[in-house]
Design a protein around this nucleic acid. Structure first.
Length: 423
RNA sequence: GGAGAGAUGGCCGAGAGGCCGAAGGCGCUCGCCUGCUAAGCGAGUAUAUUGGGAAACCGGUAUCGAGGGUUCGAAUCCCUCUCUCUCCGCCA
């Protein structure tokens, strides 16, 4: 949510910055609505002040019958106030919905651009493997080793669900544990295990609602939603709280399943693990002081990159352009791993700085000392990493000519010492 | 699923139609005092929104779990909902 006072004072600038996301976003109508509401509010509060004054006076009067005519008059005033309250409520709701559907302003560090094609490569790490055979896509590797079973996943549930078997299931678990240990042990994050369903307030706080309800799985007959990412429950931990300035930055890590409808991606990535309705992810979330969020962003990105570096997998970092960043984000870096089986880079992590956009929606503030003014924190998060896609990266990068897959060194303790997955 | 109890400021806790944005305590901040520490004394200590002001600040309104109702007036009375706790049943 944008600052309503910023919008009042800088509407043209805000409009221009929103437009850099692409067409379809406009702030038209805001000014009229806002002024209409404030005008009514002013009249309404004047009436209430009068009512309060009168009520105070009548409390002191012993003989109530002597002020009977005034009481009659106030009864009418009360009715009028009630009517205005009703109108105000509607205007407020209209204004609120408007504000909740306006995306964040792209930050200064975000390159301008229209689409994915305008994203800027920041750096590459490592080198792609150079096998002397033709590497296969992970679904072929996984099926041949009988560690990924897409057919049974479809039988159990449907398309975009997968059954992991044996060493495949173990690999997923090993990766999650490896990442959690790294982030808690070396990067200073506190591990959290949140509910996998959240309510409407939480979804609104991080920006999934009200605009993107179609992307979410919702419980039948209940206002609960399956989380599309741990970002939602973890960021909302501090919803409607005023944190101590000295406690910032706060860093949490959580390993959770993520549930996404993937509406609108029919026919895309239908094979393999890349696009599933359910997948696991280790998510990094940070709450920082506004001045520190840029540095925190780089730190968080580095923490995510570290996972791939330790696993020895080639990747590149992309700065997403204004036309490609998500609704709530001011700035986003994607980490893309090299997938030799598909001869392409694929997103494995997305790290974003939301500025105060989520904090304002969710009411997450901090205060210095005891008498400082509460101020909105900045929120950040990033995958560290998407576990399923890391399995993909390992299968494709560490596959051998004989169809087996070497297990990267740091993972072996988590695999009970296993060095290689064979049939 | 059945029965009951509760929800008040950073925390504890009073209040039972007007004198209540809310006693008292704890905590915290500032000042005083005392070789240090502890104790003591004094003052202060919510949030949002809106109007005025360059600002310091001043005023209005709202907020006692949420929403509705009664009333000139509600933390207080009535209704609905949510959440928490206790007991019983069921259950990983």
């Amino acid at each position: 949510m944008l600052d309503i006072r910023y919008l009042r004072d800088n509407l043209d600038e805000a409009e221009a910055r929103i437009k850099s996301r692409g067409e379809g976003y406009t702030l038209a109508g805001f000014r009229d609505l806002d002024e209409k509401k404030r005008k009514l509010l002013y009249a309404n509060e004047a009436l209430k002040a009068e009512k309060n004054r009168f009520s105070d006076e009548i409390a002191k009067v012993k003989d109530k019958s002597s002020v009977q005519p005034q009481i009659e008059a106030m009864r009418a005033t009360s009715q009028l106030i009630k009517q205005q309250d009703e109108e105000l409520k509607q205007l407020d709701e209209e204004l609120r919905m408007f504000l909740l559907t306006v995306p964040n302003l792209p930050g200064a560090a975000t390159p301008l651009g229209r689409s994915e094609a305008d994203n800027v490569e920041i750096r590459r790490w490592g080198t792609p493997p150079t096998p002397d055979f033709s590497p296969k896509p992970h679904w072929e590797v996984g099926e041949a080793l009988r560690i990924l079973d897409f057919e049974t996943g479809a039988k159990l549930t449907g398309a975009r669900f997968t059954l992991y078997r044996g060493a495949g299931a173990r690999l997923e678990r090993a990766l999650a544990n490896f990442m959690l240990d790294l982030h808690t042990g070396e990067h200073g994050y506190m591990e959290m295990l949140p509910p996998f369903m959240v309510n409407r307030d939480s979804m609104t706080g991080t920006g999934q609602l009200p605009k993107f309800e179609d992307d979410l799985f919702k419980m039948e007959g209940m206002e609960y939603f399956l989380i599309p990412t741990a970002e939602v429950p973890i960021t909302n931990i501090h919803r409607d709280e005023i944190l101590k300035g000295g406690d910032l930055p706060i860093r949490y890590v959580a390993h959770t399943p993520c549930f996404r409808k993937e509406a609108g991606s029919y026919g895309k990535d239908t094979r393999g693990l890349i696009r599933q309705h359910q997948f696991n992810k280790v998510e990094l979330v940070a709450f920082s002081r506004p001045d520190d969020s840029c540095a925190e962003m780089e730190r968080l990105l580095g923490n995510a990159e570290r996972v791939l570096q330790l696993l020895g997998i080639h990747y590149r970092v992309m700065a997403l352009c204004s036309g490609d960043i998500g609704f709530s984000a001011a700035q986003t870096y994607d980490i893309e791993v090299w997938l030799p089986g598909q001869q392409t880079f694929r997103e494995i992590s997305s790290c974003s700085n939301f500025g105060d956009f989520q904090a304002r929606r969710a009411g997450i503030r901090f205060r210095d000392g005891e008498k400082g003014k509460p101020e909105f924190v900045h929120t950040l998060n990033g995958s560290g990493l998407a576990v399923g896609r890391t399995v993909v990266a390992i299968l494709e990068n560490y596959q051998q000519a004989d169809g087996s897959v070497i297990i990267p060194l740091p993972l072996r303790p988590y695999m009970g010492g296993m060095e290689r997955i064979t049939l």
